[in-house]
Write a protein that binds this DNA or RNA. Structure first.
Lengths: 255, 255
DNA sequence: TCAAAAGTGTTACCTATACACCCATGG
DNA sequence: CCATGGGTGTATAGGTAACACTTTTGA
């Protein structure tokens, strides 16, 4: 009934690792007195070749023999985007036969979080164009994800994951949607927010990203208490900020 | 720097889907007055061929062209174990170069939950031997998983995922460990316990499985209140049980 | 009648929320 | 000074733990 298996007897797919990279961007505002604006950014790569030439796509590439899919993801993040030491989490495998016009290609999808958006805005790589786009999730009127760069907004509608204009390559719109939902889940249940933060941070550095990702709002006072059990105060202060200087905290290890 | 890609230029791995199948077994006790004993079971397949002949392994098989990895998992569950309509969740990809002596084989790992352990004890299939083993997790003295069949106990130690005697094939010990941790997480955070239950169940049907999986114990009274918000009472009762008949509930849809 | 499970109610405690209030500092 | 964010305290609501208690039914 089940034939004796030789791995030569079967067709084999190509396997790739694709990364949905998130980071927090801090706009140093002109007025020192107002609260620093923090936003959630996603790293996308403008494709330089067919198929989907000039479309945005996820950073990623093919798995080489001898390499794990995690190693592939980390290697591609370094090569394509100069993202160093991200936290990566495998959250899905995409394998529909029609997902890639080049042929049978299965993709292992990774959620990747970096602490250092501003530093590596990816003008390091030569041919590859990596961009940090602004990421917004809005479920007030149906579920929508809005990605914004200098020139345009890309809307990912939940109902039809592939946007009409096909600005995103392959099935990457759905992968991005799934990645954000996993990110939300991990931030709520496993404190993954800290993997988007530098080693030292103020309480207010946490709140905006936390609220953007989880979609839940609270007052600064209550947010402080909620998060205080998970962080430890240090002797350092954020001198740059205006008004009362804010104490810097670090994550309590564990989990 | 990055060569123009043709999928013919690269080596391709074989890709498989492997399933860690969990189910709840109810022992109809001889004495009607005592509480039915429920236990967590895991489905393993005794291999009939090399490598790892006669070792236990996960149910699984190779992905065929035109098929998604989910379809592969469901197909193999039907073929090898007669498990029908399980809930499956992809929780990882295993790709270490040395994980399979036959060659370069990447495995997509699925958590699979079935509502009907007792019915399909898998004497349906011919050559393939599928068995439900008792599953126990114990972290009182280091982390251990203990799998038990009629004749033996297999101990998976967290520190060295591959047990010394190599009773489990390939890297399946680690996959099983990871699967249980994901199961625990999903039961705590996303009410996945209901996917191990038939459509109608008593409150006490929930408690033992919930406690085995999460490792948290409470009194029957408090457990009732905790989950009462997630279930809806029906007009049916469990007549078979002794003493006061227990009302049957159903899951409240949503999530 | 009694043991054992089903189910209800009470109290204490812990955490999340709402809100009032003081502190520090650039403008 | 005062607007704005940093930070503390207090009252209230909701959920969980501990435990006492009633109901039901097989043996």
């Amino acid at each position: 009934m089940i034939a004796i298996y030789s791995i030569e007897n079967f067709d084999r797919p190509s396997v790739a690792s694709d990364c949905v990279v998130f980071g927090i961007d801090v706009e140093e505002s002109e007025c020192k007195r107002s609260l620093k604006q923090r936003s959630l950014k996603i790293l996308l790569v403008k494709r330089g070749e067919e198929p989907f030439i000039n479309h945005y796509s996820l950073a990623g590439g093919f798995v080489r023999r001898g390499e794990t899919v995690e190693e592939t993801a980390l290697r591609e993040l370094g090569e394509e985007a100069g993202v160093a030491e991200p936290k990566i989490i495998n959250f899905g495998v995409y394998s529909r036969a029609d997902r890639d016009p080049r042929g049978w290609i299965i993709s292992c999808a990774f959620l990747a979080l970096t602490k250092t958006v501003s530093l590596c805005t990816a003008d390091n790589s030569d041919a590859i164009e990596a961009h940090w786009l602004n990421f917004k999730y809005d479920d007030t009127d149906g579920e929508k994800i809005i990605l914004t760069d200098d020139r345009q907004s890309i809307v990912i509608n939940y109902k039809n994951h592939v946007p009409e204009e096909n600005i995103l390559a392959f099935d990457h719109a759905k992968i991005i949607y799934d990645a954000f939902m996993r990110l939300r889940d991990e931030v709520v249940n496993h404190d993954l927010i800290f993997d988007l933060m530098p080693p030292l941070f103020a309480v207010s550095d946490l709140q905006q990203p936390y609220e953007i990702i989880t979609g839940r709002k609270t007052s600064p006072q209550n947010f402080r208490k909620k998060i205080l059990s998970k962080i430890r105060e240090t002797e350092f202060f954020d001198e740059r900020s205006a008004h009362r200087t804010s104490r810097l905290y670090e994550k309590i290890q564990g989990e």
